[in-house]
Nucleic acid binder design. Structure first.
Lengths: 164, 164
DNA sequence: ACCCTATTGAGAGCTTGTCTCAATAAGGAT
DNA sequence: ATCCTTATTGAGACAAGCTCTCAATAGGGT
């Protein structure tokens, strides 16, 4: 790959996600796919993110680092990452999909403020258990779920009240 | 409105939803709106539906009945119906919004088969209660929610197993 | 080093939903 | 019943976001 420095260098070592990267590469090989520079760039970028992010921002982040990739490739490979379970894709009220890398064993859901679009995560093992029960009762083999509570956060509620 | 027969005639009397229609008309008047033929057509059509339906199918259903309406009007007035609480709008995994008229006091959620796209409704007061609690704990004033469990239904699971 | 073919990039294309603005019609006033 | 004001409508342009196409590129097996 030429004389450039390794892409996953210093600042935020991708080695921190070596287990996930292992999964990704194994998934690619098992399905007869190739481990390309673009795929690794996308992987690194999304695992560097700590918030929900959309495809276009991922695209621009990668370009900003001086790495080349096209929009089509970002979309195509996000699908791959979703398929192999490393990334979660959701519509959080807005028009576009938001992506986040999965923290294994940390199933969480979202509260979304319909005024400021702020997203707050929460964890509820009780709800997760109920969901599994419901799926079983209906003979469904559950793969994933989306629970999103949309409402008005305190800050926005106060702002609205003050304006009146 | 000319010599045409009443639009909400025989076959499936809209009078069955007179309470909801009352709410709609009151909502319109209170907000300085007008009760137009197009709005009533849309109201009737969506209350005739027993499944989730998208805006374009609603548009085509109304046209198929020989009633005129434009796409823009469908979209605009669906928003109105959502605002006054008579209709629920959700992204059930797919790309487009799906609409359903609200059965008062029957909050329900959805199981979606990722193979055949079949949607099954379920009711879980326990989950609803937990959701309210979570929203309160995070200082959110909850307005609506979406809970969707996506997986593989029994029929599709058996089909897959049989094929192997 | 060579070859086969999966993958990429650039841009066209599609889908879904929103906006614009002239024409129409609801509904209060007369 | 007619007039008048203005909300609403319809047709099509527009926009966002995502997917497809196809020639050029580059993994990675031999």
């Amino acid at each position: 790959m030429g004389t450039e420095p390794a892409e996953t260098a210093a600042a935020d070592p991708a080695s921190a996600h070596s287990a996930e990267r292992e999964i990704f590469e194994r998934y690619l090989r098992l399905s007869g796919g190739r481990v390309t520079a673009e795929r690794l760039r996308l992987f690194d970028e999304i695992f560097r993110q700590h918030e929900h992010i959309d495809a276009d921002r991922l695209y621009r982040s990668i370009r900003r680092r001086g790495r080349k990739i096209s929009r089509a490739t970002v979309y195509r490979n996000l699908e791959l990452l979703v398929d192999c379970g490393l990334v979660r894709r959701q519509r959080l009220g807005q028009r576009r999909y938001l992506y986040e890398h999965v923290h294994p064993g940390q199933a969480h859901d979202h509260l979304v403020c319909r005024v400021c679009d702020r997203v707050v995560e929460f964890v509820s093992p009780a709800i997760s258990a109920l969901q599994r029960e419901i799926a079983r009762a209906h003979d469904f083999d559950p793969a994933e779920h989306t629970l999103q509570i949309s409402g008005v956060c305190r800050a926005c509620a106060e702002k609205t009240a003050a304006a009146q």
